[in-house]
Measured scan of single mutants.
Amino acid sequence: GLEHMADEEKLPPGWEKRMERSSGRVYYFNHITNASQWERPSG
């Protein structure tokens, strides 16, 4: 619901949600550090 939507907005600075086109899996990418990970970043 709306709570989940708001929660997605609160990623740490630099992080954004991305989708891997080949598999459709969602991952997280940090455009500041060029880091990427499957787990939702905390902090």
Rank of each mutant, 00 (worst) to 15 (best):
G1D: 13
G1A: 13
G1N: 12
G1H: 13
G1L: 12
G1S: 11
G1Q: 12
G1F: 12
L2D: 12
L2E: 12
L2F: 14
L2C: 15
L2G: 13
L2H: 13
L2N: 11
E3P: 12
E3A: 13
E3D: 10
E3I: 12
H4N: 11
H4Q: 13
H4V: 13
H4A: 13
H4W: 11
M5P: 12
M5F: 12
M5D: 14
A6I: 11
A6P: 13
A6R: 10
A6G: 11
A6Q: 12
A6S: 11
D7W: 07
D7G: 10
D7M: 10
D7K: 08
D7H: 10
D7V: 10
D7L: 09
E8F: 04
E8D: 13
E8A: 10
E8I: 10
E8S: 10
E9F: 08
E9T: 08
E9Q: 09
E9H: 08
E9V: 07
E9N: 08
E9R: 07
K10D: 14
K10S: 13
K10W: 14
K10C: 15
L11H: 01
L11T: 02
L11S: 01
L11A: 01
L11E: 15
L11V: 06
P12Q: 02
P12R: 02
P12S: 03
P12K: 01
P13R: 08
P13E: 09
P13N: 08
P13K: 07
P13F: 14
G14W: 06
G14K: 01
G14I: 02
G14H: 08
G14S: 03
W15G: 00
W15Q: 00
W15M: 00
W15F: 02
W15R: 00
W15V: 00
E16L: 06
E16G: 04
E16I: 08
E16H: 07
K17A: 08
K17W: 05
K17Q: 09
K17D: 01
K17M: 11
R18T: 03
R18N: 02
M19Q: 09
M19R: 13
M19V: 15
M19N: 06
M19E: 08
M19T: 15
E20V: 10
E20Y: 09
E20Q: 13
R21I: 15
R21W: 14
R21N: 15
R21Q: 15
S22E: 15
S22M: 08
S22Q: 13
S22I: 14
S22T: 14
S22Y: 10
S23V: 03
S23G: 05
S23M: 04
G24F: 03
G24W: 03
G24I: 01
R25Q: 05
R25S: 03
R25N: 04
R25G: 02
R25W: 03
R25P: 01
R25H: 04
R25F: 04
V26G: 02
V26E: 07
Y27W: 06
Y27C: 06
Y27M: 03
Y27L: 03
Y28K: 00
Y28G: 00
Y28R: 00
Y28V: 00
Y28Q: 00
Y28D: 00
F29S: 01
F29Q: 02
F29R: 03
F29E: 01
N30H: 04
N30L: 02
N30R: 01
H31T: 15
H31A: 11
H31W: 14
H31L: 14
H31Y: 14
H31N: 13
I32Q: 08
I32D: 08
I32S: 06
T33M: 05
T33A: 04
T33S: 06
T33E: 04
T33N: 06
T33F: 05
N34W: 07
N34R: 12
A35M: 14
A35Y: 08
A35T: 14
A35D: 07
S36N: 05
S36M: 15
S36D: 02
Q37E: 02
W38V: 05
W38T: 05
W38N: 05
W38L: 06
W38R: 05
W38P: 04
W38S: 05
E39W: 08
E39V: 06
E39N: 07
E39M: 06
R40G: 02
R40F: 10
R40I: 07
R40T: 06
P41V: 01
P41A: 01
P41Q: 00
P41G: 01
S42R: 09
S42V: 12
S42H: 10
S42M: 10
S42L: 11
G43C: 15
G43A: 12
G43S: 12
